[in-house]
Amino acid sequence: MDATATPETILKLSNIESYYGPIMAIRGISLEVPRGRIVTLLGANGAGKTTVLKTISGILDPQKGTIEFLGRPIQRMEADRIVRLGLSHVPEGREVFPFLSVRENLMMGAYPRKDRDGVAEDIERVYGYFPRLKERINQPAGQLSGGEQQMLAIGRALMNRPTLLLLDEPSLGLSPLLVKEIFTIIRRVNEEQGMSILLVEQNAKVALETAHYGYVLEIGRIVMNDTCDRLMHSQDIQEFYLGAKEAGARGERRWKKKKTWR
């Protein structure tokens, strides 16, 4: 893929503000996802990353601002209609249907679709990405291991053939080996199908390696955005998210230079 040309924007958030009851969780966020790219949203616990995704997929309604997906406004649209437009969300913590079999879980991902042949084709493709799911095709999803459930959650979202995939913490609670495996597949899906992905991650290293462009979120605001290459070499990112330590007088440095963007 040509990385220099700017592809069309398929998702555009402008000045989004979301609340949990009286608490303002997102304080005016604007971001863009170009077609065929992986964009990552980094930030510490409670920065509002998940809230951003929930607002996009219609689980939460924003108080202010607009969300445009493929050129049409989707803020305050019903969640199931947004899915039908081609936007799938892999929620944090997997959220599989525990008593449904693996196959039934995948079929639920294809619920909005009517083309049986295409669905059968896609289910095979998902098994191709995750061969381990095929071994457990008739098992209830609740009996799968955490990693397998994460694979199922991603596979289930792919069954909708989304234009844009929202991925919330796919590395949560997984072993480093599984994280590597899952991110390899995320990259493959992006490259083979040209699927755009908005990735939320706590594991900044793997997220920056996978994505093309990154936004850094802090307490509901975007404080930094750049290509992932440049973010990875930024001193602040290295210190805060990648755990790189300054050699020498660490304590002294920390108090001299205020390391926050607020």
Partner: peptide
Amino acid sequence: TAMRASSENMLAAYYMG
């Protein structure tokens, strides 16, 4: 199946469309 799915995990059912 969608009914069983919604009764197991309503939020995930919303995510599935």
